[in-house]
Design a protein around this nucleic acid. Structure first.
Lengths: 338, 338
DNA sequence: CTGAAAGCGCTAACAG
DNA sequence: CTGTTAGCGCTTTCAG
């Protein structure tokens, strides 16, 4: 039998089902069945052997595009975010890819909704975004989507954690350490305005403890690290009527750390600080930064799992779920000075 | 005219070319031409208007899967790496996505070659890998690929920078600062063995300066930061016959920084240290870490551009190109003590 | 147990 | 200027 790897009329073509069928002397339907392990239909062992042999000999690989067109399933999921460089986002991409791959799905990354979601290219999408946002382009689509975000409470169609609660945890952590005057370093908060979960969580926890909020807003520069540094430095110039700082993210916290050190204020002896997101930078900071760990990685993986699940079971939306927050203790916090 | 958004026999179907054609009272070929701006063929303005109107009214979006099957083009490029969590890799994903999107391509991320590359799902692939590796699964494929890596000299089909040169730059930088005893902190080097570009670059530059190499290998733990810390601490226990350290990456350098501070050795006054990759951690370290900046971001973008270019021009391989290294100066280096 | 054939939605000759 | 038609490679009835 001749080893025909390519059809003669169109050289360099990949082997197709038809090639395998011809080589094995059967029909393409049978080849399809065998290669897809359609075990519900009985097939002669000899036929199976012939087909498998031909397939490997010809190095057959299914054309997933053709399959997708026939089945209306692409086996790929889009992961959408506008903040592709954010180290917080980065924490979720690996778990998502792994979860998808395990289930035979592929990952498409995109930072723009246009097209992609409507072009039949993906079976569903994981959206790192606020499910309540007005300008939501996905609501109209019949595409199954699942949101992952740090909003309050589990909402249908999203897996979330509560940033308000995370911030409150940070505050309570400090309160338990004996701190009564805890500053909230928020800097610029362009994403959500001042009624953001984090700010609210901070205020809530502070007043629940019976203390006064002291939130630091403002923007000296676009660079968050530098902004945290500048804000803290400015505050350092006045009377130091605070013994601890909770920051909206690790960048800001790191900036505060820098300003503190520069001013000769030792952390954690004189001032405690806690960051947010628990990025790698927190771990490697000096002193290592205690930071609120969001479950974004698990959220991503869970979103992937549930999305795939709901797609394969024909559902188009997913029941929501909320994940617990944790705080990673390192060395940037200590018992408050008396 | 009736607003028929879905074919009656299969509800919830997305609008197809046929739907638009029917609504506009023309053939699907004409619709295809209009919607794809096939301007080489003249079409009656009235027809164009009718079609566009119908298309928007029915919210037509082309099915890219069908198009891909017909054209044998998917307009998606795979970005492959085994180190999806590596902050060095992370630096390139955003530029790659942007470059691709600008050209109408989509990005598929994958950490496993199996399938993906052979399944017709992508038009080409950017591989973060050594193009000379034995176990290369892409060589056989007719899929256009382009490698990006830190190997020596431009090689055909890859965009690269020279890690040997990068390491040499770091050494020369220190030499110019007056250092004569420069340690090379390599730790465990599982990826390439000891004949790696970085080790060679280090040795070459050291001996060109007329000094003696002093390389620190070994592995106390899998965690690179901790490993750098432990190795440095061990060295600190002996006689300090070195005034500077160049590290294989920022993790290791950060570990060294930690050990140094703990031992009361001040950086940069007593010891200078330079990192590698210039990740965010380097910037936020204390003191801010001088680090060798690889052009991985530009390399990614260039790879994307050239790959797309070569695909659209029918070429299957890309001419190689080498990119220059730079070193980001921060505060972890100083003139050597006499 | 196996094969023929009808699509999936779109593109690209080719024929008017 | 516009329509017909033959695929792209695969899945999936429906007949044998």
């Amino acid at each position: 039998m001749q080893t025909l790897k390519y059809r003669s009329d169109r050289p360099n073509r990949r082997t197709t089902l038809a090639d395998v069928a011809r080589a094995a002397g059967v029909s393409i339907a049978t080849v399809s069945r065998v290669l897809n392990n359609k075990t519900n239909i009985p097939i002669a062992p000899a036929t199976i052997r012939k087909i498998r042999e031909a397939a490997t000999r010809l190095e057959y690989h299914p054309n997933l595009i053709a399959r997708a067109l026939a089945t209306q399933r692409t086996s790929t999921i889009a992961l959408f975010t506008k903040e592709m460089v954010d180290p917080h986002f980065v924490q979720m991409i690996q778990p998502v890819e792994a979860a998808l791959r395990k289930r035979g799905y592929h990952l498409a990354l995109c930072s723009e909704t246009a097209g992609v979601l409507a072009e039949g290219r993906v079976d569903g999408a994981i959206l790192l975004a606020n499910p309540n946002a007005r300008e939501d382009l996905f609501k109209g689509l019949s595409l199954p989507v699942i949101y992952v975000w740090g909003g309050p409470g589990p909402c249908p169609g999203c897996v979330s954690w509560d940033d308000a609660e995370g911030m409150a945890m940070a505050v309570r952590y400090l309160v338990n350490l004996g701190h009564r005057r805890i500053a909230g370093l928020f800097g610029d908060y362009p994403d959500n305005g001042s009624r953001s979960p984090k700010v609210e969580g901070y205020r809530r926890a502070i007043s629940q403890a019976g203390y006064e909020p002291n939130d630091w807003f403002g923007c000296f520069t676009d660079d968050q690290f530098e902004n945290g540094y500048l804000i803290t430095r400015q505050r350092l110039a006045g009377r130091r009527d605070w013994t601890a700082i909770v920051a909206r993210n690790d960048y800001l916290a790191l900036g505060a750390l820098r300003a503190l050190r520069e001013a000769g204020v030792s952390v954690p002896e004189q001032v405690s600080v806690v960051g947010y997101n628990d990025t790698e930078m927190a771990r490697f900071a000096d002193p290592p930064l205690t930071s609120v760990l969001t479950p974004i990685a698990e959220a991503g993986a869970l979103a992937a799992i549930h999305l795939v699940d709901s797609i394969e079971n024909g559902r188009t939306s997913v029941q929501g779920m909320g994940l617990p927050m944790t705080i990673t203790e390192r060395l940037s916090c200590a018992i408050a000075e008396r």
